[in-house]
Design a protein around this nucleic acid. Structure first.
Lengths: 64, 64
DNA sequence: GTTAAAAGTAAAGTTTGTTTTACTTTTTGT
DNA sequence: ACAAAAAGTAAAACAAACTTTACTTTTAAC
């Protein structure tokens, strides 16, 4: 599972800490997801989707 | 988080056990997700999406 | 109305996602 | 070059997703 969070975050000029706050998760969680350490939960994926105004499929790519 | 899995599964005429096998998860996992006991992981949501030929947003509805 | 298949449920255990604390490295601005 | 902010990283602890085993209830077919 790949994601475009780092780029989308850059487009909105947000720091990891700012994004984390808007998502109500820790900064480390944002960092870990960006770095591909693990995938977010589905609810968190929906939050990202709504925050960035993109579909989940536009943000995450399944690499099976 | 609500989902339409039960209906989509009925449309494809699959049992929970059959769907579980196609998803490579246990039957209890399918049952629990259908009954709303918890949300699937994002990778599992993608598998469901691809199996049913529907977007994640068409299958799951975020109720925050 | 019995039987068999499917669905529901539950406890104990493993794995994965997330938090907290804390420290190091990189980037940015002066 | 220096300081401050941002990003990276890691371990311990907790929470949520998922498995396995096993049993009960509902549904469908005869």
């Amino acid at each position: 599972m790949k994601n475009r969070i780092k780029v989308l975050r850059a487009e909105k000029d947000l720091t990891q800490a700012e994004l984390a706050k808007q998502l109500s998760v820790s900064r480390q969680t944002v960092n870990a997801i960006e770095k591909g350490k693990f995938d977010p939960s589905l609810p968190l994926a929906f939050k990202l989707s709504s925050l960035f105004g993109k579909s989940i499929e536009e943000i995450f790519q399944n690499e099976e």
